[in-house]
Design a protein around this nucleic acid. Sequence first.
DNA 1: CTAATGACCATTA
DNA 2: ATAATGGCCATTA
Length: 94
Amino acid sequence: MGFKERVYLLTKKIPKGRVSTYKTIAQKLNCKAYRAVGNALNKNHNKDVPCHRVINSSGHIGGFNMGIKKKVKMLRKEGILVKNNRIDLKKYSF
DNA sequence: CTAATGACCATTA
DNA sequence: ATAATGGCCATTA
């Protein structure tokens, strides 16, 4: 099982209405490859992995392969408050 | 093998 | 608040 698959597996565990960060996911994999986590999610095309729930450690939106507008839209649809492309990690972190 | 590429991070200016 | 910088590391060419 490669790095990518492990990232997807952890991402799938994020509940609807909550978020995690690239850094947190890397830490759960016992590594510091937060940048590679983003790269892995970028290449994901599986709808079952909710990659829109992964954001920056600073609480900013981060990127999205279908455009950040779409990402914000999906997050808001789950009841997450997004203001100025930012999310309160204290409140929504998983 | 090396070199370049990011959905990143922390620090500094 | 923004912008630049150096580091980071799996993946890809």
